[in-house]
Amino acid sequence: MLVDAAGREFMHRYDERGSLAPRDIVARAIDAEIKRSGRECVYLDMTRLSADEVKHGFPNIYERCLGFGIDITKDLIPVAPAAHYQCGGVWTDLDAKTTIPGLYAAGEVTCTGLHGANRLASNSLLEAVVFAHRAAQKACAEREPTPEADGIPAWDAGSATDSDESVVVTHNWDEIRRAMQNYVGIVRTDRRLLRARSRIDFIKKEIKDYYWNFVVTKDLLELRNIAVVADLVVTCAMRRRESRGLHYNADCPNPDATQPPRDTIVEDYRY
């Protein structure tokens, strides 16, 4: 049973079926409860079962939680929505070609048209091997000579110096992830998306300065990448004026029936 920090059941406040409501309704209720309370998680309560029932019925969960110091026969289990799978991505055709000649993409990074607005469980490994195969066939059939490296400038580190303050990277990294978790999670609203938008725009500017002034590190490169991805998620979420599949916006809670479903396309991204 799902409970709040005080151990009170909360699902019945959202749906008369309680914890047995459909999965997407439960997910939205958890999101709402976390936002209402300002805490980072809700709890699963298994303490109403006997210790024997728990240990025999859920041996893996029991062991795993014990490893984190949680005895689920006595303690509440903290749970929260976790980002799991990216259904959109780099657009490809059926041969895994992107819109840039010579560039292919396959696997979770892509948007091939297979998943649409929500992924069917266990279709992702299949998609990865099918499109990797298609890409290999095409790339071998249309094989291009290896380009000469002479005309390509070496990496320009410019006047970059070692940063003496890595805290900027840590701070921005944390701020992007928190903004996305709080404002662009399971339930979105126009206001939440605008909040995320303004924060990410500001961080993008800061990263731009930082990026050209300091010697690159893996943390900095990853920060620069998650800023772009966050920007793309918010851009796509703001453009979709309906709720469909995994995208739920409380300000337009239904699918748009006035026009055929369409993909959200970003061409010519500027960063």
């Binding site: 997910a27 799991h84 990216q86 959109g88 929500n118 399971i186 793309l232 453009r239 959200t264 010519d268």
Partner: peptide
């Protein structure tokens, strides 16, 4: 995705992020 976007490749449907609602 970030690299491809910066290179100008077409990106699609990034609003569809799947969440596990009850992750430990």
């Amino acid at each position: 995705v970030a690299m491809a976007a910066r290179a100008g490749a077409r990106i699609a449907n990034m609003e569809f992020m799947q969440f596990h609602p009850t992750c430990l």
